[in-house]
Amino acid sequence: MRLLPRLIGILVAAFIAAPLLIVVPMSFSTAPSLEFPPPGYWLGYYAAYFTDERWTQPTVNSLVIAFGTMLLTMLLVTPATFAVVRHRFLGRGIANLMLTMPMAMPHIVLAIGYYSYLGDLRLTQTHAGVIIAHTALSVPVAFLILSANLKGFDRNLERAAMSLGATPLRTFWHVTLPVLRPGFAISALFAFIQSFDETVVALFISGRESETLPRKMFESIRVQADPVISVVSTLLFAAVVLVVLMPVLWKAARKRRSPTGPSAVARDAAGANAGTAPSDINPCAPSRVQLEA
């Protein structure tokens, strides 16, 4: 009775893991097309990825665009989040709805909109155009994470700071900001990844000049299964593994080094927006809800 559901659970876990792992050996394969198991191993396609401008340029474009999206998103979302979380005012519900709406839009719908609208503004095929579109798409995630953190923020800390003589500005700078720093960091990271992974809108609006990595990958997969894709996939997967494991490793290292440390603040604050999952692994994964794809 206990065994069967357990077994099914383990099989499902294997179903989730297998495809993730298969791209790794593929990236070292000598085969020019999809073939598994690989007939031989080499690093030729890694060399190809790092030297071929048709791959490095989209990678740089994606990094630049993701970074720009992150900055613009945080700049816009931070004051808005304080307004929505900290104040009760007429139209708050509408503001809330507006900030989360882009999340509920199928990306293909927005892709058409941006294709024609940014085209009118002569912003298609530019970095700025993609950054603008990606910022609109990143706002909900960044807002949700930041507002969850802000809601969990103890207002008494600010009251205490003020009673101790800190002006509102210094209170924000010396107390609110440092305590919320992990929340800001996670929020920004999500905005970055949201942009870095976004495919559909980029497919329609990023021209040759601002081609993003996902667009390049999509087209390579569609046209001919370029073996370099498995290299990019492996590198992207490795980056995910690194980011996901980082808090775990950090925690383990901290435990060994000393029993105290300011980073515990980070962990607690990150845990505040919890929702699901063992919070030390990935506190806010489900907020990455997007009808992208």
Partner: peptide, 15 residues
Amino acid sequence: RNIGIVFQNYALFPH
């Protein structure tokens, strides 16, 4: 105001 306050949850700055 120069008034000292101790809060119920202490409100010590965690950082």
